[in-house]
């Protein structure tokens, strides 16, 4: 830490914070592979997919999601039982352990975008903000692919 004396105060603080074990939070969450399918107008719900990586040393808990695109965005979980019946329900809070990732992908967790304000059009993108229990947020820009898309763009 000796070098800190010779550096600007701000940089010094950053170094101290990142070096302190146990400090973590929403700012350690990285988003990869965001994508969504185009919607048909605004009357049917849309869905958005991506992977959240907790690169920090503490667990983080995802508590909610917001976007200017939809009035009611929620994290939902699709589950399929042994009889092959699929249904969706609200996922509730999702804890991502330190160093772990959570994937929102078809047939599992997804951001369900209810009460769309504008149609989701192929080629466009929209911001999606994830809220965490520590008060921090992470925003991803989600590209809208065609309705028949099967996954994120390579």
């Amino acid at each position: 830490m000796k070098t800190c004396y010779f550096r600007p105060l701000a940089l010094c603080a950053v170094l101290l914070l990142t070096a302190t074990p146990g400090f973590a939070g929403a700012e350690d969450v990285r988003v990869t592979d965001p994508w969504a399918r185009a919607s048909i107008g605004v009357n049917r719900p849309g869905a958005a997919y991506l992977t959240l990586h907790n690169t920090g040393q503490d667990d983080v808990t995802l508590t909610g999601v917001t976007t200017p695109l939809a009035l009611r965005p929620e994290i939902h979980l699709t589950s399929t039982n042994a009889e092959g019946i699929s249904s969706m329900r609200r996922a509730g809070d999702i804890t991502i352990a330190a160093g772990e990732s959570v994937s929102l992908e078809p047939g599992g967790l997804h951001t369900m975008l209810m009460q769309l304000q504008t149609p989701m059009q192929e080629g466009e993108s929209f911001p999606l903000t994830f809220e965490f229990s520590d008060g921090g947020t992470v925003t991803a820009d989600v590209p809208v692919l065609g309705l028949a898309a099967r996954g994120p763009l390579e």
Binding site: R44, P45, A47, T78, P106, G107, R150
Partner: peptide
């Protein structure tokens, strides 16, 4: 059902493929 945001478009996309 067409209001289905996850399972149905996913399967129909697979069918299209």
């Amino acid at each position: 059902f067409s209001n289905c945001p996850d399972v149905c478009p996913t399967t129909l996309a697979e069918v299209a493929a």
